[in-house]
Amino acid sequence: MSTASTVPTAGTSTQTQRPHTAERLDLPYVADPGEVAPQDAREISRVFFERLTSLEEGTHEYQYVRNTLIELNLALVKYAAGRFRNRSEQMEDIVQVGTIGLIKAIDRFELSREVEFATFAVPYIVGEIKRFFRDTSWAVHVPRRLQELRIDLAKAVDELSQKLDHTPTTSELAEHLGLDEEEVIEGIVASNGYTAGSIDMPVDDASDHAAVPLSDRLGAPDADLEIAENVQALKPLLEELDERDRRILRMRFGEELTQSEIGAALGVSQMHVSRLLARITRRLREGLLAVE
């Protein structure tokens, strides 16, 4: 192609540096790479790949050629992403992840392979998207090793179920996969983290009653449990008190008498009762903390 020949496109570039860079590199100037027809994109990409091999990585010229190749082949990403349009993730996120695969393919492609770039790039793009789903689709994060083991277990269960005519046991799965039973159990437990259900979803127990949310059936901490624990911990501490101190506690917290009423019963002032209660409760509190 002639120096700086222009590829007809629907858009007009606003980046004035591009025409000069294309002319300097003896490449066709692509005003709007995203609007180039697929057949033209394949031909132009080949020219740009040939030029890319002669440029030093990191230079302005190298970045220009590489970036143009990315823009020229974004249609491959959109094509591959279309296979996953039924997923819950936003299509924009899938395209962004697929673009990473495209960039990896561009950096690793060699014309000497004598294969079309599209044929070489699509597996990279799809692979990157699938890795994205594998790493982000789990409701609970688990190590990659267990994520991959989940897939192997699912395949093994299908194969062995058909072969054995029953659901395979842990030992059968372990023998089939060449793993320890502990590893298989770990993988099965980890598989439970792949999806999570909302506790607000109705649960149908096949009874005559209407389905109610799971949250209505979940237990809650017993508010009296801590009190029961404290009472058990207090018993030996109370036994260490003398009779008068135990009587004061019984009147104040058992019979719920006022400090004035306790003072009248003991023949002391209300202020003295207050000091006695403060001393007794402080001793009990320090005893509880020492036990904990």
Score class of each variant (00 low, 15 high):
residue 208 D to F: 11
residue 188 I to D: 02
residue 253 F to Q: 15
residue 245 D to N: 14
residue 236 P to G: 15
residue 252 R to L: 03
residue 252 R to A: 04
residue 215 S to L: 12
residue 240 E to S: 08
residue 238 L to G: 03
residue 249 L to H: 06
residue 190 A to E: 06
residue 193 G to N: 05
residue 224 D to Q: 15
residue 181 E to T: 12
residue 194 Y to M: 15
residue 241 L to H: 04
residue 249 L to S: 08
residue 197 G to P: 00
residue 251 M to D: 03
residue 183 E to K: 13
residue 249 L to V: 12
residue 190 A to Y: 04
residue 189 V to A: 15
residue 221 P to M: 04
residue 227 I to G: 08
residue 194 Y to F: 15
residue 251 M to G: 10
residue 217 R to Q: 11
residue 254 G to L: 07
residue 222 D to W: 06
residue 185 I to A: 07
residue 206 A to G: 05
residue 183 E to Q: 12
residue 254 G to N: 04
residue 247 R to F: 08
residue 214 L to W: 02
residue 188 I to R: 04
residue 208 D to Q: 06
residue 201 M to H: 02
residue 216 D to M: 07
residue 206 A to D: 14
residue 243 E to S: 09
residue 236 P to F: 10
residue 223 A to Y: 13
residue 202 P to S: 01
residue 199 I to H: 10
residue 243 E to W: 10
residue 236 P to M: 14
residue 195 T to R: 09
residue 222 D to S: 09
residue 190 A to H: 08
residue 213 P to H: 07
residue 182 E to H: 07
residue 236 P to S: 14
residue 237 L to M: 15
residue 222 D to V: 03
residue 222 D to C: 00
residue 251 M to N: 03
residue 221 P to I: 00
residue 212 V to W: 07
residue 202 P to C: 06
residue 223 A to T: 11
residue 186 E to Q: 03
residue 200 D to P: 06
residue 195 T to C: 09
residue 223 A to C: 11
residue 188 I to G: 07
residue 205 D to P: 00
residue 253 F to L: 11
residue 193 G to A: 11
residue 226 E to Y: 03
residue 187 G to W: 03
residue 227 I to A: 11
residue 183 E to R: 08
residue 242 D to T: 06
residue 200 D to G: 04
residue 196 A to S: 08
residue 249 L to Y: 09
residue 213 P to G: 08
residue 181 E to P: 01
residue 201 M to N: 13
residue 187 G to S: 11
residue 187 G to K: 00
residue 207 S to H: 13
residue 197 G to I: 00
residue 251 M to L: 12
residue 227 I to K: 14
residue 203 V to S: 04
residue 224 D to A: 15
residue 201 M to Q: 15
residue 228 A to F: 02
residue 185 I to C: 07
residue 191 S to C: 01
residue 211 A to M: 12
residue 231 V to D: 01
residue 250 R to M: 10
residue 232 Q to T: 03
residue 199 I to A: 06
residue 230 N to P: 02
residue 185 I to Y: 06
residue 204 D to L: 04
residue 226 E to W: 00
residue 196 A to Y: 02
residue 215 S to P: 01
residue 191 S to I: 00
residue 216 D to Y: 00
residue 236 P to R: 13
residue 192 N to M: 15
residue 196 A to T: 02
